[in-house]
Design a binder for these strands. Structure first.
Length: 245
DNA sequence: CATTTCGTGACAGAGCACCT
DNA sequence: AGGTGCTCTGTCACGAAATG
């Protein structure tokens, strides 16, 4: 399990199928490493840490248990909080825009200056021609320049719109990849969005039931631990009684 | 025929230059 | 310093064309 700061998208989305419990719950590291004893497998729960370790050997020093309320609350908060490493994916485009800001500004300045310079050169040429009286050729040249500028602006606008649509399409394609049953399946964008909402609701429901089950197991483990302690205490007293006899 | 793709105009926001 | 005008960029909505 990754640390809280090293969180990936896959870690964030909890697995949907736990029925065949070959996949064990990915709990807190302290939980899985604390119990080196083999795990009891139960048909409904899937796994259960063994707390019954009752040979004559002295009681094993058990690591600190998960405190039911605090840890569960922490789990819930963790699951419902976006990890930092996930956030840049949302702001990727803005970040690129920010990082390229200076380049774009410079480019813009160059283009505007170039355009203005052209205009200035044109105006200067106009001044020259104004001395010689304006001719149809100059008017035609200005008209051509304006038309070229408009055409360039139009092409830029078209490319900008194409880029934007490509980003949207990529987003839908990526979304499709993450939705079970939607890969390589023909589905309209509206249906895809609807399916996404359904899937999110399903994940939230699964998450809720898993956290409930986790809480139940932690409580059960605490009860078993108390029972283990009482049994060990009883055994110790009986040993003392037999020795003194 | 529903859906997607594409070009286009309109608009908002940001940045810059120029003017007062 | 603040106002103004201009340009650029990104976004949205619309209609037409293309697609399956």
């Amino acid at each position: 399990m990754n640390t809280e700061t090293d969180f990936t998208f896959d870690d964030y989305i909890m697995p949907t199928t736990y029925a065949n419990s070959q996949t064990k719950l990915d709990l807190d590291p302290s939980f899985s490493t604390a119990y080196s004893a083999p795990l009891l497998t139960t048909p409904d729960i899937g796994f259960l840490p063994t707390v019954f370790d009752l040979p004559d050997s002295p009681p094993v020093s058990t690591p600190p248990l998960l405190s039911s309320s605090a840890t569960i609350s922490e789990k819930i908060a963790k699951v419902n909080t976006l990890p930092d490493s996930f956030l840049p994916q949302f702001f990727q485009y803005s970040k690129e825009t920010y990082e390229n800001g200076h380049k774009k500004k410079a480019k813009r300045m160059n283009s505007t200056n170039g355009f203005n310079n052209n205009n200035n050169s044109n105006s200067s040429s106009n001044n020259k021609t104004s001395d010689e009286d304006s001719t149809d050729e100059d008017n035609q040249g200005n008209a051509d320049d304006v038309a070229a500028a408009l055409e360039m602006r139009r092409q830029i606008h078209i490319q900008s719109e194409q880029k934007r649509r490509a980003q949207i399409s990529d987003g839908f394609q990526e979304l499709r990849q993450h939705l079970p049953g939607c890969i390589n399946k023909k589905m309209s964008k509206a249906a895809l969005l609807h399916r996404t909402v359904q899937h999110l609701q399903h994940l939230k429901k699964n998450q809720s039931s898993l956290l409930t089950e986790l809480e139940r197991l932690v409580n059960e483990n605490e009860q078993l631990k108390k029972f283990q302690d009482s049994v060990l205490q009883k055994q110790a007293l009986e040993r003392m009684y037999h020795v003194s006899m």
